[in-house]
Amino acid sequence: MSTAVAPGIRVQLTRFAIGWIGAVVLLGCWQLATARSDSAFFPTPLEIVADIHERWFSAGIGGGVLTDAFFQDVTPSLQRLALGLLVAWAVGISLGVVLGRVRTVAEYLEPLLHFMRALPGPVLLPLALVLVGTGTSMRVSLIAFGAVWPILFNTYSAVRQVPECFIDNAKVARVSRPALLFRVILPAASTGIFAGLRVSTSLGIILLIASELVAATDGIGFGLTQSQRSFQFVAMWSFIVALSLLGYVANLILSGVETRILRWHRLMAAIQD
């Protein structure tokens, strides 16, 4: 039996510090390089931070911190992404479980699943435009329809690979059907499902930005292209940073949940290395 040797707290702190020093040095270089350059395309990080503050976080008394522009630029995108991904995850995970457990149905549908997973999501945009129109529902359904396939496929194959003996053991213990699903099948398939969540999230962000280009009046994707076309390069950078933060936060949330739920898996993998 082996036990993972955890590095001491001091070593960890030093690593953490060195890592952040690396990041700060890089940021400093960016500042210096952009300050010396006279390209309008590349404002300095300080200018960008100032613009972000003024644009989204400088509302006066009574209005809180967030400006009206924040609710115009950021909130709609957040809503579209969250709604689209939630629909994709709910549909993808439930259908994936059903297909993973009902072999016959899966055998009929497998080629289609492979096809839909292989389809590069963004090609659906023109189709969505024609089918659903240009409202918020188009953007949400594009995200949902595009992002559902990786999660559906991953859940399906993860559930199919759940060892039959896990299920036999649970059945002999006479657990109820919901308990079999929530306490055995889903935990056993959880690593595969999480991989699917990650892929579908990055795909969802691409689809969000693509969908906000067409007939949109708000959202990060709209602001991004609008500022570029009107040569407001500092504003464009603010939107780039906003989108990056969106990606970063989405990743952080997923990692946080994953760390909690898959703690056992991480420890187990560490031992088997």
Binding site: P163, C165, F166, N169, V172, A188, W264, M268
Partner: peptide
């Protein structure tokens, strides 16, 4: 009811999570 079973493959019997 009233029945328990121990399988040969202990790795597949105990839930790793």
């Amino acid at each position: 009811q009233g029945l328990a079973m121990v399988f040969q493959d202990y790795r597949g019997s105990l839930f790793p999570w």
